[in-house]
């Protein structure tokens, strides 16, 4: 289970600045369980955005937004609405935002912060894509996480080490994360996002909250215990 919390609404609104037509994406997996991106929260968000004068061109709450192929397949029926949208608001973990960003050529705004991966993982090798940093930056980086995509986790642009779009470390297998981010932002006509200087990351937000750390049980042990109690 990936534990997420909703980003403050003013932060979401700021990220949607300049975008009128919004398509909202939720997830029936962890985000629904955390009550951050299930059907209920997506509909609430739709109302809130409408009150702010935005046009919500559609929404979809998918099963398991963590699998890229599945997302592509399930968003297909909404193709027209998505094409007509200025951007997408994805109310899930960072993996869901990245999976969505990877299949639609649209700006993809994160609606949540991932606090902790909790127990099991997403279908799409989550730990390679989301560090559970507690303060999602995907809005600035075209839906590609600089913490996981860049070997050095740089947040203000590339170092001087990339060659032909490959990382100085293991170039045969690693692309330069900032090259990917640059190409994606350029494609989206959104390069201004890259010009914003981000504050040093608050790594204290990476420590999971106390109540998530208060068990010595592993995720599956907890499930076993709950099952036997029934």
């Amino acid at each position: 289970m990936i534990i997420s919390e909703a980003k403050p609404f003013p932060e979401i609104l700021k990220s949607l600045e300049g975008d009128q037509r919004i398509f909202i994406v939720g997830c029936k997996g962890c985000a629904e369980a955390c009550q951050t991106g299930g059907e209920t929260q997506v509909l609430e968000m739709e109302q809130q955005l409408k009150q702010e004068g935005k046009t919500v061109v559609g929404h979809s709450v998918l099963d398991f937004l963590c699998d890229k192929a599945l997302v592509k397949f399930k968003l297909k029926p909404h193709e027209d609405a998505i094409i007509s949208a200025d951007s997408l608001l994805v109310m899930t973990c960072g993996i869901g935002v990245q999976a969505t960003a990877a299949v639609v050529d649209k700006v993809t705004h994160p609606g949540c912060n991932v606090v902790n991966v909790g127990g099991s993982r997403g279908e799409w090798r989550g730990d390679e894509r989301c560090m559970e940093c507690g303060d999602c930056l995907l809005d600035y980086t075209g839906g590609i996480c600089p913490l996981t995509a860049c070997t050095k986790s740089l947040i203000n642009g590339p170092c001087g080490g990339a060659k032909d779009g490959r990382c100085e470390f293991e170039p045969e297998s690693r692309e330069c994360g900032w090259h990917l981010i640059y190409e994606r932002l350029k494609k989206l006509g959104n390069l201004d996002k890259m010009k914003i200087t981000l504050d040093p990351k608050d790594y204290s937000k990476m420590r999971p909250p106390q109540d998530l750390r208060s068990t010595i049980m592993w995720a599956l042990e907890r499930r076993e215990k709950e099952a036997s109690a029934k």
Binding site: N156, G157, P158, W178, Y182, K186, L191, M194, K195, T197
Partner: peptide, 11 residues
């Protein structure tokens, strides 16, 4: 490409 370097230089 040079542009990412220029953006960072400006920062």
């Amino acid at each position: 490409p040079l542009e990412p370097q220029l953006i960072k230089l400006e920062k």
